[in-house]
């Protein structure tokens, strides 16, 4: 009996060892996969499910099929007005801020690269990038005070009386300005390091062929920046559709600056939560973001 037990345990041990070896890779993956399952995969499906319910964060959600979506697309309803006004404001931000947040850093990178003294160039780069690490709250508070109607630096220095919260255009000018101040640094560094990686011999050859600065920029610099430019554009557009902090914190006239994310936030976590409606809006915004990113990825590939 004793002998049999020992041999059985030996076989078990050998099997176990083999079994353990096969598990090892999964042990490396496990910590991430747990969080991935709980906070990435599950919420995606659950979020879509909630959008088909009338869930209000309390009690049990009741399945109401496409009611939330129907209400959003019933033009003239409160939900429809809120969603599409929000989408409109989000689009205003995206089509104005995103091109600028790609174009301005491009100009800055080209100018910085033209500075031959590397030390001076690095100092300028550090200063222009330093504002990019500040949080959106810090930046908005600074600009709110800077643009204050009575005591702000802007109005007093230029001897004007501009109320940046007075109308939609001015509010967006302010929001886009503060976005640029705190947002051009990252792209500038990406572009600058791409430009720096172009072999100098190529520039020299182009110069010898009689190409002037503009020709060199369009024929040499710009093509080599195609990938980083597209990358910045894609991340910019995704960020643009998700814009929340800047308008939420800066404020303005009611009905002139609320973005989709603010509507979703308001509906989901406001005084009378409508998580179902907010989820439907999230899904619609998600679909828009997904479609736009797919189109952009396609364009990047084709080139």
């Amino acid at each position: 009996m004793i002998v049999r037990e020992i041999s059985a345990s030996n076989i078990n041990k050998a099997n176990k060892k083999k079994g353990i070896k096969a598990i090892i890779p999964y042990l490396f993956l496990l910590p991430h996969l747990i969080f991935f399952a709980i906070f990435v995969v599950y919420p995606f499906f659950y979020g879509i499910y909630i959008s088909f319910t009338n869930f209000n964060l309390m009690g049990n959600p009741e399945f109401i099929w496409f009611d939330n979506y129907v209400q959003i697309f019933t033009f003239g309803s409160k939900y429809s007005k809120d969603f599409f006004a929000g989408l409109g404001h989000t689009l205003i931000y995206t089509v104005t801020a995103v091109p600028l947040i790609v174009f301005v850093p491009l100009v800055l990178a080209v100018l910085l690269y033209a500075i031959k003294n590397v030390r001076i160039r690095n100092i300028f780069q550090s200063i222009l990038y330093s504002t990019s690490i500040l949080s959106v709250s810090t930046v908005v508070l600074i600009f709110t005070w800077l643009l204050d109607r009575d005591n702000g630096l802007f109005n007093n220095l230029f001897l004007v009386d501009i109320n940046f919260k007075g109308n939609a255009v001015l509010t967006w000018v302010a929001i886009i300005s503060l976005t640029l101040w705190s947002g051009v640094g990252g792209n500038m560094i990406i572009f600058l390091s791409s430009i720096s990686s172009i072999p100098k011999s190529q520039y020299e050859a182009a110069s010898l062929d009689g190409a002037n600065a503009f020709q060199r920029f369009f024929r040499l610099t710009l093509p080599s920046l195609r990938f980083p430019l597209t990358f910045s554009l894609i991340t910019g557009v995704i960020g643009g559709f998700n814009v929340f902090g800047q308008p939420y914190l800066f404020g303005g006239q009611v009905g002139s600056y609320e973005t989709v994310m603010m509507e979703i936030y308001g509906y989901a976590f406001g005084k009378s939560p409508m998580a179902g409606m907010a989820s439907a809006m999230s899904v619609l915004l998600g679909i828009i973001i997904l479609l736009v990113s797919i189109v952009q990825f396609r364009m990047m590939r084709e080139k």
Partner: peptide
């Protein structure tokens, strides 16, 4: 593939979780 999922959809479910 999941990198393509817009994070906005997960906001409310993660709050509930």
């Amino acid at each position: 593939l999941t990198m393509m999922i817009p994070s906005v959809i997960s906001l409310i479910p993660n709050f509930l979780t």
